[in-house]
Design a protein around this nucleic acid. Structure first.
Lengths: 212, 212
DNA sequence: TTGCATCCTGACCGTATGGTCAGCTTTCAG
DNA sequence: CTGAAAGCTGACCATACGGTCAGGATGCAA
């Protein structure tokens, strides 16, 4: 009848179903937490029978793990902005932009990540002790060098990083609160831009790294 | 046999049991989320039989509601620092101190609060639309006045508030991450002090409100 | 066309959980 | 001292959930 809807090669089927499941799972885990999420809800949202979920992901834990690892990948990618930069203004500006973009485009993933960490990182502990720690140590070293070169004030690099994570992540994790205080409406393009500009201005000024 | 352990008036019993249950519940809700928490776990931690929990709190939802309202009270109290202040240096400094103290002393409560907001504030929506909104509007007005009086740079008051909430709350909600990056050890007194000082310095400098 | 691997799913199962209740013990006002 | 109210709890129940499985449908290589 139609090639437009039904060609579906094996590979495509698998890829598309996994994608649909992961997307639905991300949303449900974000909204209900791991304990509150049910395979049935995820299945319904993905438009598949529950048993089909277990065909692709053996257990709820495995599905959850996949979701968490996905967002962790995205999170780490944003980190690269830091390396290319010549100084704190470049580096921190682009990092804030990248993290704010994540908060805006992947609020559910951000919430799952936050939830995972809040509950003691049962799944990601290994990553935190290896990948995340290495990444952090590297960035601390970069910031330290910027300070030595007089490109910014002597601020504790770790607390500065926490501040960057906190402020940017906040717009995803506490998005509901922000929306409520915004009259029940989600932030407009303009408001997102203002948010980014404000954060950048306060932090860059705060560490004495204003553009020359 | 002993008066030392058994006088226990009715009133005392009720007060102490409710307190023990609320404390246990706060911890379990923080660690497992609402969905992952079980009445049995809370009962065990409180050292009471499960049925006794239902004597004091009819349902899991009711118990959860009490926990959330408790932390919301504490949260609002910290807000008063703002009013007494004569300028941004005073006001924001003491607010950061107060919120950091909450993050340190009530990390479980902070996590429950964060979780509640992340999941769309099913319990606290009303409070957020009334109490929280009024409080926020009031503080926005104060900040605006400070700007008019030239006591700080013209920063968007709302985004400044979000920044304060985010940075301070982060030390509770993401405490596990911070500990992991701190070599698996919780922050020392000195490190907490440094955290506070860093946040204050960066933000106050960032908004152009350094002490004269 | 055939055979096989992949994909799919309704029906089912064991368990854990929130909640109930009948009946016990303890406190305390009168 | 007494009776009633408050406090307590082991045993129980209905439900919902994660997970299983036998067997059917579908794509595809040969």
């Amino acid at each position: 009848m139609s090639e437009t809807t039904r060609p579906m090669r094996r590979q495509d089927i698998r890829r598309e179903n996994e994608k649909a499941i992961l997307l639905a799972a991300e949303k449900v885990f974000a909204e209900a937490g791991f304990g509150g999420a049910t395979m049935q809800l995820i299945a319904d949202l993905a438009g598949l029978p529950k048993a089909n979920l277990h065909y692709y992901f053996a257990t709820k834990e495995e599905l959850y793990r996949s979701v968490v690892q996905n967002i962790f990948e995205i999170w780490l990618q944003a980190a690269n902005c830091f390396d290319a930069a010549r100084g704190p203004v470049d580096g921190i500006s682009s990092y804030i932009d990248a993290k704010m973009e994540i908060s805006r485009r992947h609020p559910d993933g951000s919430k799952v990540w936050a939830s995972e960490v809040m509950h003691g990182a049962p799944v990601l502990q290994d990553y935190m002790e290896s990948t995340l720690r290495e990444w952090t140590d590297g960035r601390v070293e970069i910031i330290r060098r910027w300070i030595e070169e007089g490109k910014m004030d002597p601020v504790d690099p770790r607390h500065l990083l926490y501040m960057l994570w906190a402020t940017t992540q906040h717009y995803a994790d506490f998005g509901h609160q922000i929306e409520t205080l915004n009259g029940g409406k989600s932030l407009s393009d303009r408001q997102w831009r203002e948010a980014k500009e404000n954060i950048k201005r306060v932090i860059l000024t705060g560490i004495g790294a204003q553009p020359a």
